[in-house]
């Protein structure tokens, strides 16, 4: 069939176009929109997961606003979001380093090396890290013992911090000491180089023309100046995209906390984040309606953040 060009106005009334879109639209409506709309509706009900629901109006939302655990979980998640943004730096630096490699062949092999660990599912990654955090058998404590870092931490605890988290006579319990929970969650994933992030930044860097670098060299720019004046500003679109992904991912995410700390958020509930509290309320307390309300609050927060991000964080090219 030959391609037919038509005006936008005409296209609106062409039933064939709708026919082609309909199957995909149907699937999106069924599997994406319907569950979301269902969650919105159920957030106004007392619902324990079965067929039975009782309408309670705004009660779930008022309870959520007065929920001290939910409030403190937002404090925790804010810390993790800031940490997550800072943890983008190694990926940016690595992308720049790879980009500056003169040999195409070596660039290729570095990219392959980055891709290979991606075949490991995230879940397995988390379990591996759980093992790293093991106080008796874990890699972290073994390394700290070997390089004398533990002694330094014990000294710091005794003379500065006074946490009683680092004791000379027992291994460091990374996930059993309340004050070490957030540092452990931040430290997770060290050295914080995500293949996808590096690829996104690399794509941005590769769009910078060679003439820009030539001009910089002519002007006598150093490597650092090239990074700060050319590369970093020109990949701000990708940086912004990654910031959005980090913020949304961190706000929604709870898998890491659940697998490392359990549904109660670990000792003193220090690892409780909004997503985990939503899970806890649904599957531990059986308050599915309330969990939907928490989900809706999260959705609104993410929507507002995304709106402000798009409106105010502009990138001047």
């Amino acid at each position: 069939m030959a391609a037919v060009s038509m005006s936008g106005r005409r296209a609106l009334y062409n039933w064939r176009i709708y026919l082609y879109v309909l199957p995909s639209l149907g699937l999106i409506l069924t599997f994406c929109y319907f569950p979301a709309i269902s969650a919105v509706v159920r957030s106004f009900f007392e619902w324990q997961g079965g067929d039975y629901m009782q309408f309670i109006g705004w009660e779930n939302y008022t309870n959520a606003f007065n929920d001290p655990v939910l409030r403190s979980s937002f404090v925790t998640i804010s810390v993790l979001i800031v940490a997550g943004i800072i943890k983008m730096v190694p990926s940016i630096l690595l992308a720049v380093l790879i980009h500056r490699i003169a040999s195409d062949r070596w660039q290729y092999w570095y990219r392959v090396l980055l891709i290979i660990p991606m075949v490991v599912p995230d879940l397995v990654n988390i379990f591996i890290w759980k093992f790293f955090f093991d106080p008796n058998l874990g890699l972290i404590n073994a390394s700290f013992d070997l390089f004398g870092i533990k002694s330094a931490l014990v000294w710091l605890d005794q003379h500065v911090l006074h946490w009683s988290a680092f004791r000379p006579d027992s291994p460091i319990s990374w996930l059993n000491e309340p004050r070490l929970i957030i540092p452990s969650l931040i430290f997770w994933g060290f050295p914080w180089i995500g293949a996808m992030s590096v690829y996104i930044f690399l794509a941005g860097l590769q769009s910078i023309g060679a003439e820009v670098y030539e001009a910089a060299e002519l002007d006598g720019a150093s490597s650092w100046q090239k990074f700060t004046k050319i590369e970093f500003p020109l990949i701000m679109t990708q940086v912004r995209l990654n910031v959005i992904l980090v913020v949304i991912g961190t706000l929604q995410g709870y898998g890491l906390q659940y697998l490392l700390l359990g549904p109660a958020g670990g000792p003193a509930g220090r690892g409780m984040v909004p997503g985990l509290w939503m899970f806890n309320r649904a599957f531990i307390a059986g308050q599915f309606g309330y969990a939907c309300a928490i989900g809706m609050m999260l959705f609104l927060i993410i929507a507002v953040l995304t709106y402000f991000n798009n409106k105010y964080i502009r990138v001047e090219k």
Partner: peptide, 8 residues
């Protein structure tokens, strides 16, 4: 009295 969505 026991329809799944219990409303007033």
């Amino acid at each position: 009295l026991n329809l799944p969505t219990k409303t007033q």
